[in-house]
Nucleic acid binder design. Sequence first.
RNA 1: GCAGGGAUGGCGGAGUCUGGUCAAUCGCGCAAGGCUUAGGACCUUGUGCCUUAGGGCUGCGAGAGUUCAAAUCUCUCUCCCUGCACCA
Length: 944
Amino acid sequence: MVIDYKKIEEKWQKAWAESTFFESEPSEKKEIMVTAAMPYVNSPPHIGHFRTYGTADVYARYMRMRGYNVLFPVAFHKTGTPILGIAKRIIANDQDLINDFISVYKVDKSVIPKMVDPYFIAEYFKKEFERELKACGFSIDWRRTFDSIDPLFSKMVEWQFYKLKDLGFLTQGAHPVGWCTNENNAVGQHDTKGDMQPEIEKIVGIKFKEKDTNNFFICATFRPETIDGVTNLFVNPDVEYSLVELDGFRAYVSRDMVAPLSYQMGIKIIEEVKGSDLLNKVAINPSTNENIPVLPGRFVKPDFGTGVVMSVPAHAPFDYSTLKVLENSGIDVPKGPYKSVIRMDNSNKSDDEPPAFAYLKKHNWSIDNNSSEIVEIATKELYKDEAHSGVMISGKYANMKESEARNLIRNDLIESKNALLIYVLANDSVVKCRCGATVIVKVVEDQWFINYGDKKWKDNVIAHLSTMKLYPEKTRITYQRIIDWIEERATERAEGLGTKFPFNKEHIIESLSDSTIYTAFYTIINILRSANISPESLKPEFFDYVFNGSVEIEFVSKATGISAYVLKHARESYEYWYKNTSRHSGTDLLYNHLIMYIFNNVGIFKKEYWPKQIVANALLMYNGQKMSKSLRNTVSLHNVRETYGTDALRAVIIGSVNIDSDSNFTDLFVNQMLQKFEQFGNIISELNGYESKELKPIDFWLYSRLNSKITEATQNMEEFRFGDAFNGLFYGSLSEIKHYVDRNGSNKLVLTDFISGVVKMLSPMLPHVCEEFWSMLGNNNMLIKENWPEPDNSMASKEVESEEKIIEDTISDVRNAIALTSKMEQNQKKKLSKISLIIADQWKFDAYNALVSKRKLSEVLSLIDQKDKERTAKYLSQFKNPMELIALKDISSELLYNYFKDACKYIKKEVDCDNINIERESESQNSRASRALPNKPSIYLEWN
RNA sequence: GCAGGGAUGGCGGAGUCUGGUCAAUCGCGCAAGGCUUAGGACCUUGUGCCUUAGGGCUGCGAGAGUUCAAAUCUCUCUCCCUGCACCA
């Protein structure tokens, strides 16, 4: 049969919509709310979105069949800066972008001019999403749809921030950000050329006081723990420096760095100095109080840190080699031996020569062979080794690992005001803003943060996480790690769409922060709308009542002007739905959204409404390639769905893999899937050719398979192993039906029961196709309202399944034997005349069962003498499947004999031999009779 | 740098937690045969190496160890992927 996917999709989507089955209201039933992370609407939906929404939809449909009252709503994310960025580029008439919009996104040319308005862009793509998700037939309650700048929703976001502040979870402070000095704006990854994430790194500037003055040298360093080994400072004599007034003290800084540092601290130039003027000054090491000279170092870069570095010749090959070269040219430099402050933990002797020299020597360095490559290599090696296994030699942190001591020493230095923090960009190359300016680090003052480091909050989250169901389970450790590590997160932003930040109306709420507890809004939005509630009336008291029940209803009603009836209704809806939630998202959101989702829900709501379950699916690949953010590589959901139909996409994207694996979408695969659908349809349409009659063993086999399938599929669905579930139900059933027919199974009732069960179980994954199959099977009701099948032990007959397996194995063995013996010399030019299959005697069955009752081979073996172990293990291992053998306890020699007799016709056909003789071992004269095993009849072939 | 994940046939990918059911589910590809006017689809069989009877050998990134037994447990090494925050 040829299936018209478009037609059946439209037909059943219409029927479902008319039934209002997906419009869910609180009831007596057990409830669950299924939500998927709301999509950001700056582009049309692509097939990556399909995976997350499809997964949620499969689960929603499955849970409905399991008897749950399921709510599956959807919302759209408009908040943030990217949409604004697009609008700006349209205004700037960016042809690259406009061309992509027209050719890739299929935006009509006439619409482009309207896209100078970010709100128009957001609404445009939101509409596309809605259309597309509807066309996919997702079981969404469309009455509850909203977007993140909906005025009603904004009121809830505001309330959330009042709440966070009341709870003490908001803090204010300084915060380093990537900054464009040209546009005067913070820059993130999508604001830079080549989408480079500005990597901000903290380093320490250690203050060395100049002797006899009040000026300081500030040395920016990654390794403050080496301070006790400092012998001198280096400045670049060829570089211009400035003496500047910093916060309360004066310091020498390379002129190049004055401007960038001014974005991090107060800085005022007092006078200009040449690098060469700084030479021969004397500084004081703040840790050891030693006097140390300032020496020339031409390797010092003027555009990093402060242009002044400290010299640790024992541990820094650059410092060591520079000193040696200076010494060689007759300049007075600190004399060795240079003091080591770090040793490797695998050696307790402190070496005579400093490690820097040892590492240089390894690479044949000498004063005459002083190439910067060698020094570079030695530096890398030494830093790596010391970072890995370095241990402090002396001082307060003696014997502590270097990597641990580093932070402690840094903090000590800062606390004692002997150092300050300096932020640098750690990217390998210079980061440029899209406007072309170089990105620097700016410290933003009075920035608001959500303090995810709050001890009590974090403890609550950790404790709650341990009670949550997480799929795949292996993500749990990732959640734990991130929760452990997450601290403050900036929560306001100067630009973008969104809700005004309540405590600084100049700013808007950062766009991930506004979408953490929004799922609660689904439970009340439809009520607010139908009661015509205005945004103005959604005062904080409203949410306090509806979500937390923390104020009196009469008071709220008076304060907001909302009727007590509506308030009560809203509260009841929240209480009903928010108790049990399943959150669906991609693993890429684990690091931010999902963590914030847990934190904010736990922080704001009462314990019984905290999230119960999170499902994170892996990526989606297209023809083996990761889909990239760049416009050209994404695959439009609309196009593939129009081509193949939504169920084929579901089968390929969701049904072909488990939740934790990347799914690979290929056109070849979808086409094959479509053909398999037709095969399935053909089987159903041919059912009328069969009749219902008395049951035969093979009928019991099919029932038994169905029963096993129900058990397996249920387990797989529960654990989100959709790939395994689909595999077993779809491909498994096709081959089982084939086997059943091959074995002369022809009972219409049995086949109908089997296929009906399978179609039911496949329907969450292939809703439209299965609905069509269901009606083809003669049902007048809608499949979506059916219950998930329950396993029924009366249908299970393990012994028939085992007997069937023995038959199959035997056929395969016979084929093998025929292939081999036909090549034998004495059989040349002869034909196979007879096959004898000899069934093992009952005593063998008994013996096996006795062995098998031990269950584990290792248990049996533990009773065996050491010297016999190998022999016994080998003997036992010939029973290829000891666990399967358990089922043999239900089979006797006689049963198996009769079963083979009954299957004789089938075996004849399969091995293509008309003369097959089934014998009992005890009655057989055959020389090979004794080789018969319970699960492997002995085979004897005769050639004539 | 820090953290996490991974390495299995021509390919995608099961199996690893709980060692023996594993020459390795399933699918793709490939080969032969059937069906067909032809092609596609579909069906059957085969697809590491050897083998004159259902057997043997090799094999799951490399090396070592534990065990009667290792893809699976332990240790070392090599290579690959992902994330690192104010950004959706």
